[in-house]
Write a protein that binds this DNA or RNA. Structure first.
Lengths: 115, 115
DNA sequence: ATCGTTCATCGTAAATATACGATAGATAAG
DNA sequence: CTTATCTATCGTATATTTACGATGAACGAT
């Protein structure tokens, strides 16, 4: 089974994992960067800036849209994409929370460095 | 091909994606939390706190070790795991950089909300 | 109405990821 | 040495991910 046993984890844990997974591919991060820098961007422009086929880029856009990090508006035959600042901010805060939990405590290293 | 076309992306982009992917599973995040809270932790304790088989947990631990977020020291027949604070901090900074890049600019929403 | 452009979706192939039982290796205890 | 414990690894099954060509749907322009 490639599917995590998500039913065993909380809704928040699953939400976090979902957002993070969307950020776990270089192409998707680059898409987000492009959209941030260009402020409104046609799908075709993104395809031109990535070493991937149009169908593949479209799939990545769909995934980013699914988790709410971007949105796409139809503009004639083209589609205008942009980031969703609210959700991006929310994801940022969520990640900060996790990392603060993981780094705040003393969190000593192992003493016995045998391996 | 399930493999991203990593050769097309920079080393830093790939490093980031790799770290983030390690964080994209609820079980692995929970493992990190357990290790942070308990400060040194036997593998068996982790298995007890997760709804997963020992073999599966061991696999997740291996992945976290691979990306450098944790380390495991042999202690007799047991293995003592702990987070790697340096790499965790590095990952945190890396994520902050990305998000700062993605959220700093005006990053307007689309105007035409047709879809 | 037809054509060209733009993009999403379908179908498909191959690689990865997730999960678990079974097994093997290492060590402590007896 | 034998046994019990702990953990990694192997083998395997299944689902998901990544990628691309081909096709289809929507729209503007002619």
């Amino acid at each position: 089974m490639a599917k995590p046993k998500i039913e065993e984890f909380s809704a928040n844990e699953i939400y976090f994992a979902d957002i993070v997974k969307a950020l776990s591919h270089p192409a998707r991060v680059r898409i987000l960067k492009i959209l941030t820098e260009m402020n409104l961007c046609m799908c075709g422009e993104i395809v031109n800036q990535l070493p991937l086929a149009q169908a593949t880029v479209s799939q990545h856009l769909k995934e980013l849209k699914r988790v709410g990090l971007i949105q796409g508006d139809i503009d004639g035959p083209k589609v205008c994409y942009c980031v969703n600042p609210d959700n991006l901010f929310k994801a940022k805060k969520e990640l900060e929370n996790i990392f603060n939990q993981l780094t705040k405590k003393g969190a000593l290293s192992c003493k016995t460095k045998k391996k």
